[in-house]
Computed example of a mutant assay.
Amino acid sequence: MSNLKSRPPSKPKQDLDAFLTGAESGKKTTPTADRPQETYPWQEPGVRDDVTKSFNLRLPEPYLLKLRYIGEHTPDSMQQFCLRVLQEAIDGKINELTK
């Protein structure tokens, strides 16, 4: 059987204090220059632009009827219109969130 004993921390007190302060504040104490650039899910290896995935969107009936009207009265289909508008909105929000 092993004999377990309590030992004092091996790091100096100021390192322990900085660690505890960072844990309490919820902030990382690592300088920005030491951290690697964040990789976002759409930048991961294996993500392909040529693969299309489905996303089901529930619209209130008046908006579905408006979307059909757009599709019938413009060169864009309902899908083309939604894809263009949604991609622009997503890119705008991502730029805002990642700056």
Rank of each mutant, 00 (worst) to 15 (best):
S10E: 09
P9L: 09
L97E: 08
K93C: 09
L83F: 06
D91Q: 15
L4I: 13
T29R: 10
P8Q: 09
P8C: 02
L20H: 00
Q37E: 15
K13A: 14
D34K: 10
T32F: 08
H73Q: 08
F55I: 08
D15V: 11
K11C: 03
G26L: 00
K11S: 07
L64A: 09
I94E: 03
T30S: 03
L65W: 04
K28I: 01
L16T: 12
D50L: 05
T98A: 01
L4E: 13
S2C: 01
D17N: 12
L97V: 05
R58M: 10
S54W: 09
G92L: 12
Q80S: 13
F55N: 03
P45H: 08
P75G: 05
V47I: 15
T32E: 10
S10I: 11
T39H: 04
P41G: 01
K99A: 11
P75F: 00
P45M: 11
T30M: 03
S25L: 04
E72Y: 04
V85G: 04
T39V: 15
Y63V: 06
E96R: 09
N3R: 13
W42N: 07
Y69T: 07
L97G: 07
P45C: 05
K27M: 05
P75H: 13
K5T: 11
I90Q: 00
D91H: 14
V47Q: 12
L65A: 15
M78I: 06
I70R: 06
T39P: 02
P60D: 10
L86D: 04
D91I: 15
G71S: 04
M78Y: 03
L67N: 01
E44S: 15
P8V: 00
D34Q: 10
N3M: 07
M1Y: 06
D50S: 15
R84N: 07
P9C: 05
K93S: 10
N3T: 08
E88K: 15
K11R: 12
Q14V: 04
D50H: 10
Q80N: 06
S6D: 06
L65Q: 14
T52R: 14
P62D: 09
F55G: 03
S6F: 13
P31I: 02
F55Y: 09
L59Q: 03
T74M: 08
Q79H: 13
E88D: 15
D17P: 03
L57K: 00
S77V: 00
A18E: 12
Q80M: 09
G71I: 04
V47L: 05
I90V: 15
S25F: 03
Q80G: 05
L20T: 07
P45L: 12
R84T: 11
S77H: 02
L20M: 11
L67M: 05
K53Q: 08
Q14F: 03
V85W: 04
N3S: 06
V85I: 09
R68Q: 14
D17F: 05
Q80H: 09
L20S: 03
P12Q: 12
R58C: 05
H73L: 03
T30K: 02
K28M: 05
L86N: 10
